[in-house]
Design a protein around this nucleic acid. Structure first.
Lengths: 118, 118
DNA sequence: CGGGATCCCTTCGGATACTG
DNA sequence: CAGTATCCGAAGGGATCCCG
């Protein structure tokens, strides 16, 4: 993976410090939970409660706030099924799915670099 | 890039939600400035003042705090040159350099997905 | 069940002043 | 120049209660 692409380094060096693509990505992958939310939704849609459990039970407010932001950013969709009890399903958009490339890079790096300390 | 690797998706789906490599990466790429600091250091070492200017002048405290954390995490080194005036140089470690794979993924995604709002 | 409303606390980041 | 020390405001995240 490192063999074929010295071009990667070049593009990273050439990108202007401010206003480059990295900053747009950071605008999405912001906050404590966002990246993990996307990770949970990659396999397929999930309900609010499923998400909450899978993430380790963040507060409802925290999760709701973040999901609303991601919805506005067109990373996921929110579908309300008018039933009793209500069922609300979150699903990644194509744009959200495409973040898998970033998440995969994060996964690979994290697996290869166990942190020494905190 | 999407053509050859359905394996990427598989590994992302299989990774356990908590304690997977993604979370270790998030432990490093934390806070408002970290990712941009690393981006600035990829081309080569920089002095404290150079970093500050390149990033858009965050407060000295903010930058110092974050640099100390990254030093403890073995992402970069801090070298003090005993001169007058003092000169302090920050340089990525091999581990820090290796984060370029993640930054490159962020750059690519950001370039291809201009945000609609927010 | 999936929130909304409210209150609260911690943390992050910034402003300012001072130092080796 | 590159910090340290101190104080501060805003925001993120959480706890609790209530509702359709």
């Amino acid at each position: 993976m490192e063999t074929s692409g010295p071009d990667h380094a070049t593009r990273l060096i050439d990108a202007p410090a401010r206003g480059c693509g990295i900053e747009r990505t950071l605008q999405v992958l912001d906050g404590k939970w966002t990246t993990l939310i996307i990770r949970e939704l990659l396999p397929g849609p999930k309900r609010f409660g499923e998400l909450r459990t899978a993430l380790g039970t963040p507060s409802a407010k925290t999760l709701t706030d973040r999901l609303r932001i991601l919805e506005r950013q067109n990373i996921l969709t929110r579908t309300v099924h008018a039933e009793v009890p209500p069922r609300v399903v979150y699903q990644l958009t194509d744009q959200g799915q495409s973040l898998s490339s970033v998440l995969y890079a994060m996964l690979s790096w994290g697996e290869q670099h166990p942190l020494i300390e905190d």
